[in-house]
Design a protein around this nucleic acid. Structure first.
Length: 188
DNA sequence: CTCTGGATTAGCT
DNA sequence: GCTAATCCAGAGC
């Protein structure tokens, strides 16, 4: 829970075919682990969610709706099952590759959603369990941006435990997903 | 083994 | 705002 807003403003880097794809993280959601009914880890350890129960610092990537991958940062201690879903980033480098991956040239639409960003950054199940301080993909502090307004709202797309304000985003950033929850959001 | 629904998106009305 | 697309993990039998 504490980690999700801290990831905002940091830079996600994906080294893909020798090129660095970079984006500023602008939207995240916290999934607390085995006590959070909305979390995949709520049901306990399974083949699908096993990476969530590892020590934090690795990726949990899963496939959903028959079409899309979602990218999470595992944040807990071993056995916790907690993770942060990266919902959107603001692309800043490697735009040509992302445009090619996404079939759109609208910068604000390239990675403005969990399925969109995995496609733009070419993140698939082969990165499930990958270290986030390794070569293929990593996250680092952004030295330039340190002032921005963080808002929070309910999490999107859930059917259980839907009222917790565990979605965090940079206020007014154009790459944050458009959603009715935005207007009922409030400062963190 | 079969069935169901999902941490979504794009495209149409 | 509504829904098809499209697959697989989890649950039930």
């Amino acid at each position: 829970m504490e980690v999700a807003p801290e990831l905002l403003g940091k830079i996600l880097v994906r080294n893909y075919k020798g090129i660095s794809l970079k984006g500023i993280i602008v939207e995240t959601e916290a999934y607390l682990g085995i006590n959070d009914p909305a979390s995949h880890s709520y049901v306990g350890w399974t083949e699908r969610n096993k990476q969530m129960f590892e020590e934090g610092g690795i990726a949990y990537v899963y496939f959903t709706y028959g079409n899309h991958y979602c990218f999470n940062v595992v944040t807990g201690k071993k056995g916790d099952g907690s993770a942060v879903l990266i919902r959107a980033v603001h692309p800043i480098r490697g735009l040509k590759i992302m445009i090619n991956n996404r079939d759109t040239n609208d910068i604000f639409n390239l990675a403005s959603g969990p399925g969109k960003l995995t496609k733009a950054f070419s993140i698939g199940k082969e990165l499930n369990g990958e270290s986030l301080s390794g070569r293929k993909i990593y996250i680092f502090n952004n030295p330039e941006i340190n002032r921005f307004e963080i808002f929070c709202s309910k999490r999107i797309g859930l059917s259980q435990n839907i009222d917790k304000p565990f979605r965090f985003f940079l206020k007014d950033n154009p790459c944050v997903t458009k959603h009715k929850f935005n207007k009922e959001s409030k400062p963190l």
